[in-house]
Amino acid sequence: MAVLKALFQRKLALLGLIVILAFVILALFAPWIAPYPFDEMHKDGLTDFGSPLPPSAKYWLGTDTLGRDLLSRLIFGAQATLIVAIIANTIAVAIGTLVGVTAGYLRGPGGSALMRFTDLMTAFPALLLAILLAAMFNPSLWIVVIVIAMVNWVQVARVTYTETISLSEREFITAERSLGAGAPRILFRHLLPHLVPTITVYATLGIATTSLTEATLSFLGIGVQPPTPSWGNMVNENQTYFEVAPWLVFFPSGCIALLALSFNLIGDALRDILDPTLRGRH
């Protein structure tokens, strides 16, 4: 609660919260908010030459290259975009924390092996790995979620690992250990609570990264499958119209930037609030 209060006191973070809330509302109530279904190709939605229409009274943000209402697609697009960003990142943080804490707590050959595997994953060019994984399975919303999670857990693992190591050398843990406390007790009662601030910060900042990864995958045509809109695949579909109909690209990529910016603002504020010593790049 105190954290929330502190967040509210920071204007920028508050702004970020409001934006995210607005996106969440759009996503949840899209069918009621959006003026048209996201996949309806309007008969009057294209010029005679088959070009998209500019913004007008009927189509507030214009139409896309298939004669669909861009605003409706943006609103529905919040669904897939948020699902990927939040769920993929949650999974990534969960995996990362599990690996990091386990490795940090176990130490020895087991922990070392886990961290070597993490190093291995760090060495992969993330986008390349994601592209390959996406090509291996037929891409769908959930495959995209899993692919991104599989690529993004590594950072969290490294951070939690370092934290766990330094925590377990602190007196209260060594004391618990000498008192004969079991591993679960040490892990859940003592280690995890201390890791919460770090994890929260990384989870928030990670959502920004995740939504950008989704956007890039979709931009390359291997993300969320059409006609389900995501902001990333909307850019992909319309990218060649950048010069002719810039709104087709600017609105969705602006939404992506706004979403990532909001999560970054909150993450930044959380970092300041929760742990002023955490600095630098995540």
Partner: peptide, 24 residues
Amino acid sequence: IGALFFVSTPQFLVAYTLLYVFSN
């Protein structure tokens, strides 16, 4: 905020914008 904005902007948007504004 500008710094954070660039950290948050998809690279294709930056690339296309630069291309159209400064080249075209």
